[in-house]
Design a protein around this nucleic acid. Structure first.
Lengths: 347, 347
DNA sequence: GTTAGCACTCTAACAAAATGAGTGCTAACA
DNA sequence: TGTTAGCACTCATTTTGTTAGAGTGCTAAC
């Protein structure tokens, strides 16, 4: 059996309608809703076919049809494409947004929190933003200072003015001279490098220069590596988790609890964060496709943003499977563009 | 009508029972449950009195009674006192906890997040911890460095090793010498002072010393003031928000949504944060008493901890009105003690 | 002051019946 | 051959009625 033009139109009708109402869609509705001018009976035949093909599902015998994951997938892949244009006209908005964001925001953290909130408000779904992963990011400089007797503060500034602090416990006393020396040592060797580039050869080279402060230098190096790379370093901001209560199919206690827990334990979202930079597409996960098992009744759309060259993070929307894919994709593109340019254009 | 011994005992019985079961308590139950050896009929008479006095409520005619806010209040104020002892024996636990916490925790932030999680797990209610309010906190030192051409990084370390960063936009070029001078200027004038003490007289004194860099110094000072004092600086960590789903009386969609939104928008919890240091008691808010309106169906228990002299924050538990007050108060005391000592004993 | 007894109330649980949306199938039609 | 009207059927939802049980308040007796 083939998926001809007409079946496609009917499927589209079913999905569009279901996105609106959240209720199973019957043949009668489609008969009126589409411009095909077919009787409900004919629609029914087609629907039976569509069901056999796996695009729609009947929750129970005497109900209308709802899209299956496969149906949504088809919809997202093929039917949405038509809308690709008209993205231009939103450039203005983006500018407005950028202006607003520039005002009060000097910390990336605050920027991202705000973005998450706006994203959730704009879409009525739940939003997440991962702080840019810095493992490809370049070190701008390091500043060591003494905090108390056996404690040093190590401030690391990364490309994009992301700041990391770490307090280092050291065994020895540190005098000012040593501190100065270490500062110079680190800054002259490490600046401008990514974590990946700070590897064995460089470390051994530094070992040679460190001289008496070898131990000290090593513990600083450890700290730097840990602060920059450590897994739990992946900050994720979320907003609008409670938006799921707008959708009855996600609102029953157990489902809601599971979902909201996922947002609370933000680490559980880390599998949504895209770490490979090759693929910059917008990704749409439908139902079972999502990497987060607790979200199998949801759809997830993610995009990768880039604050500066190599400083990438992920923004995402989590909503019901019947979410407004087109709008979300558009919104996500907008936000992605804003984030992409907020720091770059500034300069 | 008086609240005699017997009525008190019956009230206590009702509350205890209701805390356990969450179901309205009938006269029959109390007749068996207490050691008063009274028939259900007698109990009924007493219950009618208790209702008239406002301590208990009948959800509907043919149901048992449940405690009113006033009833809970009486219970918390009078009946719980008996348990005051036996806090000693838990000292060991506290030590264990401290050990665990010291291990991986170098940042206060991480410490508090962990504490919140433990608190929620320990109690099965929702937990919140406010980061210590630093407005009475002392500045340990300031470190200015140049990030890019017209940007300085200002790192402030406060007593308790709380670290604040701020990137400052400046108009002029800054050379190394100026930077050094400013660093010395700030550190020699501001160190060891609270924000409140950094006031006009000091600022004017500094103005005199700043010389050519007056503008620069002023913008740094602004930044310091803003970073230290700004209102939205109040960080609050929460955990276990979804625990409310354990309690049917809080689980219906609208209530749950409201509550969980409150946890998501953590600013809404700020009214629970105790800013006046005089009163270090554990506070119990029952139902309508709580300062957060969305929590009128909950009870809230808070305590103030003190990481170091003057570095105070609030820990709190939010749960159903029928929460286990005694356990929560105990647990909160424990955690408070741990936090009170975690940094102090370390030295 | 306490209690047994009783009529009464109201909820929760269950079952039966009515409703209605939607289907699949067949037969007729163009 | 594709389309449609008609009809019997299915099944979730809603409505209605019934019952059981928990609990009460009140009265009268102890």
């Amino acid at each position: 059996m083939e998926l001809d033009e007409r079946k496609l139109k009917i499927l589209q009708g079913i999905i569009r309608n279901y996105l609106d109402t959240g209720e199973p869609v019957g043949s009668r509705t489609i008969s009126k809703y589409t411009d095909l001018n077919l009787s409900p009976a004919t629609i029914r035949n087609e629907m039976a076919d569509l069901e056999e093909l796996g695009y729609i599902i009947q929750p129970h015998t005497s109900a209308g049809r709802i899209p299956s994951d496969k149906g949504y997938r088809l919809y997202v892949d093929n039917m949405m494409k038509e809308k690709e244009q008209e993205l231009k006209e939103k450039e203005k908005e983006v500018d407005d947004m950028r202006e607003f964001l520039n005002e009060k925001v000097d910390k990336v953290e605050t920027l991202l929190k705000n973005m998450a909130k706006m994203l959730a408000n704009n879409t009525s779904y739940a939003a997440m933003i991962s702080a840019p992963s810095i493992h490809k990011n370049r070190l701008k400089f390091i500043q060591l200072s003494q905090v108390e007797n056996h404690k040093m503060l190590c401030v690391m500034v990364l490309e994009g003015n992301i700041i990391k602090n770490k307090i280092i416990d050291v065994n020895e006393e540190i005098d000012n001279e040593t501190l100065l020396k270490l500062n110079i040592l680190f800054n002259s060797n490490l600046n401008g490098l990514t974590l990946e580039e700070i590897n064995l050869s460089i470390i051994s080279k530094m070992n040679g220069q460190a001289g008496a402060q070898l131990d000290l230098a090593r513990s600083v190096l450890d700290a730097v590596a840990e602060a920059i790379s450590s897994e739990d370093n992946l900050e994720i901001y979320t907003s609008g988790a409670t938006n799921i209560f707008r959708y009855p199919e996600l609102s029953d206690s157990s489902r809601a609890k599971e979902l909201i827990s996922t947002f609370e334990e933000k680490q559980m979202l880390s599998s949504l964060v895209d770490r490979d930079d090759d693929n910059r597409e917008i990704k749409v996960y439908i139902g079972e496709e999502t990497p987060v098992k607790t979200m199998k009744d949801c759809s997830v759309i993610t995009a990768t943003y880039e604050l500066e060259e190599g400083v990438q993070g992920t923004i995402g929307i989590i909503g019901p499977k019947r979410m407004d894919y087109e709008k979300v994709v558009d919104t996500l593109k907008e936000f992605k563009n804003t984030l992409d340019s907020v720091y770059k254009k500034k300069e």
